[in-house]
């Protein structure tokens, strides 16, 4: 469904993403993890059209999308959420979600009705008439998700929707994300909350300093020495292995 091939992007002298490739199969939940500054959000921006890749190709549903504008990509059925939430603060939750719904629906009334339906899916039905500016961080994350969902995407890019939530909220949102997938939406997510990554993903990619260093099921990936080292520093994998042996036997 989504094919990212050898994509690179640099900002001045900083190589944010280099030669990264990634494939998302229809109906899967794929996660993209990596330490801070690895280039995950940059890769999302490249896929969703907010940035143009310096090199490489991005294909969605068989059509090349690199070079298209974000709104065009959204209409094709690929939508992203923002890590730093971007609600329309002066609008109500209902109006916020309706903006997303308008991508497919011309009528105002129908869009507002659709907004209420989507709010129910994401557990926001009680907040419909609150101004978005009054929402808690958890509410804003949900709103970000609901708004994107209202555009009726085929592929949803979630950028750290779990960050900053407490354990209960994370558990709830994991359920919501799973429901969305079960409704037929393919999902690619950036996440630091490992509980969510392990529970949700069918497949995981690991990005470090702009390069894809590992891929596999979440279990495989979290055991891979290069991933452990990317997070904990050079030599960490070996030290953990030694410590494990000492403990284990």
């Amino acid at each position: 469904m989504l094919e990212v091939r050898n994509v690179s992007k640099s900002f001045g002298g900083l190589q944010a993403v280099s030669n990264a490739s990634l494939v998302v199969e229809r109906g899967c939940i794929v996660s993209l993890i990596g330490p801070n500054g690895a280039g995950k959000t940059t890769l999302f921006a490249l896929i969703s059209g907010f940035l143009k890749p310096d090199a490489g190709n991005i294909g969605f549903d068989g059509t090349p999308i690199s070079g298209l504008r974000p709104h065009q990509i959204c209409r094709l059925g690929l939508v992203r959420t923002f890590q730093v939430v971007q609600p329309f603060v002066n609008l109500s939750v209902r109006e916020n979600i309706a903006v997303g719904a308008h991508t497919r629906i011309a009528g105002r009334r129908e869009a507002l009705e659709k907004a209420a339906d989507v709010a129910a899916l994401t557990g926001m039905e009680k907040m419909l008439d609150q101004p978005a500016g009054a929402l808690t961080i958890a509410g804003r994350k949900r709103l970000e998700l609901a708004r994107a969902l209202a555009t009726e995407p085929k592929l949803l890019l979630l950028d750290e929707v779990m960050a900053g939530l407490n354990a209960t909220e994370v558990r709830e949102l994991i359920g919501v994300v799973r429901d969305i997938r079960n409704a037929g939406v393919t999902i690619l997510l950036i996440e630091h909350v490992m509980q969510a990554v392990m529970k949700l993903s069918d497949y995981t990619y690991v990005l470090n300093q702009g390069e894809m260093i590992a891929r596999g099921t979440p279990e495989e990936v979290t055991c891979a020495p290069e991933v452990v080292e990317a997070y904990l520093g050079h030599g960490a994998a070996a030290r953990i292995a030694i410590a494990g042996e000492a403990d284990g036997v």
């Binding site: 969703s48 907010f50 504008r69 974000p70 709104h71 065009q72 959204c74 209409r75 939508v79 992203r80 959420t81 923002f82 971007q86 609600p87 329309f88 603060v89 002066n90 609008l91 109006e95 309706a98 903006v99 997303g100 308008h102 991508t103 629906i105 011309a106 009528g107 105002r108 869009a111 708004r147 994107a148 555009t151």
Partner: peptide, 26 residues
């Protein structure tokens, strides 16, 4: 004010980037 156009215009006022992400050509 009660049309799709109006809703999209207000969305652009509030946050152009988010509006673009939601399929609106600012």
């Amino acid at each position: 004010e009660r049309s799709r156009f109006g809703a999209q215009l207000v969305a652009v006022r509030e946050n152009e980037e988010a509006a673009e992400a939601l399929g609106i050509s600012a």
